[in-house]
Design a protein around this nucleic acid. Structure first.
Length: 269
DNA sequence: GTTGCGTCCTGGACGC
DNA sequence: TGCGTCCAGGACGCAA
């Protein structure tokens, strides 16, 4: 499930391969989620950016190709066209050097949109997305203020992308464990919010340096699995002892999303 | 306007 | 072995 570290890993690889290239043609699976892929060509690729979990490919003509990988999305660049042999390929773009950029997505939770630069009304989450975690102007006070503006549970707020961009279930559980915050808490102190922001930065940075987390489907644009799954403390560890205090980690459904946490370290005060 | 739940979607795990 | 059921989860729509 691609979150910020996985999308950033893919972005860095795609940037090296796509910037300066031209898209000559596009193909898309029959679904409203993917049909924009056909409308892209012809186009020159200027930049490959990222906003939260969204890849934003800047094209000539003041257009942007926005790609969200959903749960199982993969973006690969092949030297030749191999895409149509795979039934899970939802879109592909023929490049001017003979290569093919392919979007593969088993569960079809991903989406593709072609929009004018910076116009994201069709993507409500992107339109209202919060600050980038590594933005140097984003500090603990700003984070605390954003969290205080809602009465929703902390975990639900993190997954909404509004107080901070790019956090999904894995890195939310990890950061909440490090900062000792109960995922179901509705209030958080200023100092705890600062600690949670530091924890989010820590786990996201580790995820990037480890090449992302591969639980099942995630691979980078070279087809390589990440390594961060071998460095998790909390997510997916229910039934095992907490690495900090030894209490058995538990899994609970919070707002219809599974959360793993330590009932001793992360008390809901 | 805010909150919380249901839906989409498929493959793997599990039980019978 | 084969079948049915459940589960995972990001984004979004909708009802309260």
């Amino acid at each position: 499930m691609p979150e910020l570290p996985e999308v950033e890993t893919i972005r860095r690889q795609l940037e090296a391969r796509l910037v300066g290239r031209r898209i000559d043609s596009g193909w898309a699976f029959e679904s409203p989620k993917f049909t924009d892929a056909r409308l892209v060509a012809p186009a020159a690729i200027n930049y490959v950016n990222r906003r939260g979990k969204y890849l934003v490919v800047s094209l000539d003509g003041d257009r942007e190709l926005v790609i969200h990988l959903g749960m199982t999305g993969q973006l690969r660049v092949h030297p030749h066209d191999e895409s149509l042999r795979d039934p899970h390929v939802r879109a592909c773009w023929q490049l001017d050097n003979g290569g093919v950029l392919e979007f593969r997505d088993i569960r079809r939770f991903g989406r593709i949109a072609l929009v004018p630069c910076g116009v994201y009304q069709r993507l409500p989450t992107l339109a209202t997305i919060g600050p980038e975690p590594f933005d140097p102007t984003f500090d603990g006070d700003s984070f605390w203020t954003a969290l205080r503006s809602s009465r929703r549970r902390i975990k639900t707020q993190l997954l909404s992308q509004q107080p901070i961009a790019g956090v999904g279930n894995i890195y939310a559980d990890e950061a909440l464990w490090i900062a000792r915050v109960h995922p179901g808490a509705r209030r958080i102190t200023r100092s705890r919010a600062t600690e949670l922001l530091a924890a989010l930065r820590e786990v996201l940075a580790a995820g990037i340096s480890n090449g992302g987390t591969t639980l099942r489907d995630y691979v980078d644009s070279d087809g390589r699995r990440g390594d961060n799954q071998n460095h998790l403390h909390c997510y997916g560890q229910a039934g095992l002892p907490c690495p900090r205090c030894g209490t058995v980690l538990i899994r609970r459904s919070i707002d219809a999303r599974s959360s793993t946490f330590c009932p001793n370290c992360q008390r809901n005060r």
